[in-house]
Design a protein around this nucleic acid. Sequence first.
DNA 1: CCTCTGGGTTCCTTGAAGGAACGCTAACAT
DNA 2: ATGTTAGCGTTCCTTCAAGGAACCCAGAGG
Lengths: 150, 150
Amino acid sequence: MQRTDFSEMACSIARTLDVIGEPWSPLILRDIWVGFSRFEQLQADLGISRKVLTERLNHLVDRGVIERRPYDQRPRYEYVLTGKGRELVDVLMVMVAWGDKWLAGTAGPPVLYRHHACGEISHVDLVCAHCGKPMHADDIDVLPGPGAAA
Amino acid sequence: MQRTDFSEMACSIARTLDVIGEPWSPLILRDIWVGFSRFEQLQADLGISRKVLTERLNHLVDRGVIERRPYDQRPRYEYVLTGKGRELVDVLMVMVAWGDKWLAGTAGPPVLYRHHACGEISHVDLVCAHCGKPMHADDIDVLPGPGAAA
DNA sequence: CCTCTGGGTTCCTTGAAGGAACGCTAACAT
DNA sequence: ATGTTAGCGTTCCTTCAAGGAACCCAGAGG
């Protein structure tokens, strides 16, 4: 954990960072999303320290984005996304879209996403949940909300 | 910077984390987005160490998501988003939507977003850039792309 | 010439990440 | 009954980044 505690800030970005803001956490979430569900798989795929992997998995379980459950009579466990965690993957998908566009270089994107609904290779775009039109950084006004800081 | 270098991984999430994955970076980006453009403003608003703020600003400038420019004859500078940086704000907007939904508690969201196009208080949603239908964690297949690891 | 302001830089302390070694449990093989 | 192996962590030590306070520098204004 970073030394400063973001979880108490009156900001949904800061609070979300309290869940996946630590190093490795987004990559762990990605791996679990695409099917690496066990400790050894995660450790091998990421090359992360076992100590840190343990800490991150516990943290993600505590925050309710993944669930730890036995898959054998022996003490064996797998980690799976909860509903809350599956929605958090939205953040990853937008990171992929941005990284593919700005950081992929000449080699092109490392992975492609095929959308079930249309069958095409595609990526995510952001729209307004209310009217369905594009919604990006310059398309909104930011106003104080009910949970604003005192 | 976290000790492990994410920038060389064949993963757009890891590469994006190399840009905004360090502690404070997303919050700095948020502040610049909403209009805190100067060093002193950022330091006072975030309560971040001046040393770390300097490091983060330099890093974000290096990666091309913000620009440092003088605003006075005196040695005074402000930081503004580049186009690349403005698109990166998409990631923040999705974090806000998720944090508002799952972490805001009874007090409600700390800030509200009003969409220019429809005038309503709203939040972002993810759709397929190709067909416009919803696109979330379970709506896609992940395939190897041209820039996949050897 | 003194002071003030914005924008950093230096230095010390604390604590998290890296990494290797070790431990624990339950099945299976000999 | 005694290895052996696989899966899942825990312990311990070293290194480096974050926190925080103090300091520095340039230019304008009194």
